[in-house]
Simulated assay, not measured.
Amino acid sequence: MERRTFLGGVAALGFAGPAFAQKGGAPEKTSVRLGVGGKPLLYYLPLTVAERKGLFKEEGLDVEINDFGGGAKSLQSLIGGSVDVVTGAYEHTIRMQAKNQKIQAVCELGRFPAIVIAVKKSLAGEIKSPADFKGRKIGVTAPGSSTAITAQYAMVKSGLKPTDAAFIGIGGGAGAVAAVKKGEIEVISHLDPVISKLDGDGDIQIMIDTRTEAGTKALFGGSNPAAVVYAKHDFIASHPNTMQRIVNAHVKALKWLASATPEQVADLVPPEYHLGDKPLYLRAVKNSLESYSRTGIIPLSGMESVLDMLRRLDPALADAKIDLAATFDDRFVKAAGS
C-alpha cells in the first residue's frame, strides 16, 4: 500500500496539534499496569511507539508494561487483577462477554490480524493447505491466543476440527525463530518480525497472509480487527480520565506511525527487536504498515467477522447471545480526535 493512502486514512482521526495531550481531565489513577502478549511483535508496535516516544508521560501517566508469553496470558492477568489495561486481540472481549465478564475495547490498533500461517519449507511438499494440519505441531505465541485461533479457523474452513492439531506456545521473539530452526514445530502461525526473519532465511513457505487487506479477505471474507486496547468495564467506568489519556497516547502513536519511515521505526524500538537482522526488520515494518488502524474505531462488519469466526470454533459461543455494541466503547477515540 502506498504511504499517501495510509496517510489519507489516518487523517480521518482528526488529530489535533500540541494541545492534544490535554484531552481528558485529571487522571484518577496515574500509575497504570498494562499487559501485553509479545511486545516485540509488530502487532503491538503502536504500544512500543507510545512507550518509546514518551507519549504516556505526556499524558501524565506512569505506565508499567508487563510482557507475557501471549495474548491469552495477558487476558488472564487482567481478569486476575494484576494489570489494569491490556493491549491484545479484540476477540477476547467477545469471549469474556459470553462468560459474563464485561471487558471492553476502547481503541483499535490493528484493522487486519497481520498473522501469517506458514509451513516449514522442508515439509512444504507434504503440508500443502490447512487440510493437512491434522496431527501436526503448530507453533503459536501461546495456546488460546489470536495466533492459535486464526490457525484453528483455517483448519475448520478446510474441514478439520480445531483440536486436530497440537498447538505449542513458542512466545513472540527469538525463541519463536529458534523453535522453527530446531524443528520443534512443523507449522507456524505468527507475526512479524518473526515471520519476515524466517521467510528471509528461507526456513518457511507462507500459506496464509493476513498482513494485507487482500489476505485478510481471502481467509475471513472481510475485515477482521486485531490488536485493541481493552479493560474491564468497571475500571473504564471508574477511571474515565485515565482511560482517555491511555487512548490519547495510542492515537498519537498511530499518527506518528502514519508519517514515520521504516528506518525511523527501527531506530525507535529496542535493538533486540530486530532479531539480529535490521534489514529484515525494515522489510517487516513495510509489510505491516497496511495492517494498522486508520480510525481507531472498530467497524461493525469487523466485529461481526470475529464473532462468526469464534462461533465456528467454540461450541460454547455457537448459540450465545452477544451484544457486539457492548464490546467496544468508541467515546475515547472520538474525544481524542475532536
Rank of each mutant, 00 (worst) to 15 (best):
280 L>H: 09
257 L>G: 05
276 G>S: 08
245 R>Y: 06
316 A>D: 15
321 K>G: 06
271 P>E: 15
199 D>M: 07
266 A>F: 02
242 T>C: 09
258 A>N: 03
295 T>D: 12
299 P>Q: 11
318 A>C: 11
210 T>Q: 13
260 A>V: 11
305 S>D: 01
278 K>C: 07
249 A>G: 00
235 F>P: 01
298 I>F: 00
198 L>G: 13
317 L>N: 06
321 K>H: 13
223 S>W: 08
319 D>E: 15
297 I>R: 06
290 E>I: 01
307 L>A: 07
283 R>G: 03
314 D>R: 10
304 E>V: 01
261 T>P: 00
239 H>T: 00
318 A>K: 15
276 G>I: 11
295 T>K: 12
249 A>P: 00
241 N>R: 12
242 T>Q: 08
247 V>Y: 02
301 S>M: 03
242 T>H: 10
305 S>K: 11
233 H>P: 00
288 S>A: 06
276 G>E: 09
222 G>N: 08
262 P>Y: 01
195 I>H: 11
321 K>L: 05
260 A>G: 04
238 S>E: 11
214 A>W: 12
255 K>H: 03
218 A>R: 14
199 D>N: 15
297 I>N: 07
205 Q>V: 15
197 K>H: 14
208 I>K: 13
269 V>K: 13
206 I>F: 10
225 P>D: 01
256 W>P: 02
287 N>R: 04
253 A>I: 06
310 L>S: 01
295 T>G: 08
305 S>T: 11
291 S>I: 01
244 Q>G: 11
279 P>L: 06
306 V>A: 00
222 G>L: 02
217 K>Y: 14
242 T>Y: 09
303 M>I: 05
286 K>C: 00
285 V>K: 05
213 E>L: 09
259 S>G: 02
276 G>C: 13
200 G>E: 13
219 L>H: 10
203 D>H: 15
258 A>P: 01
296 G>V: 06
229 V>T: 06
292 Y>P: 02
302 G>K: 04
320 A>L: 12
273 Y>W: 15
289 L>P: 01
280 L>T: 15
211 R>S: 08
300 L>F: 10
233 H>F: 02
197 K>Q: 15
265 V>W: 08
290 E>V: 07
279 P>M: 08
292 Y>L: 00
224 N>K: 07
196 S>N: 14
216 T>C: 09
258 A>S: 14
265 V>L: 12
313 L>Q: 04
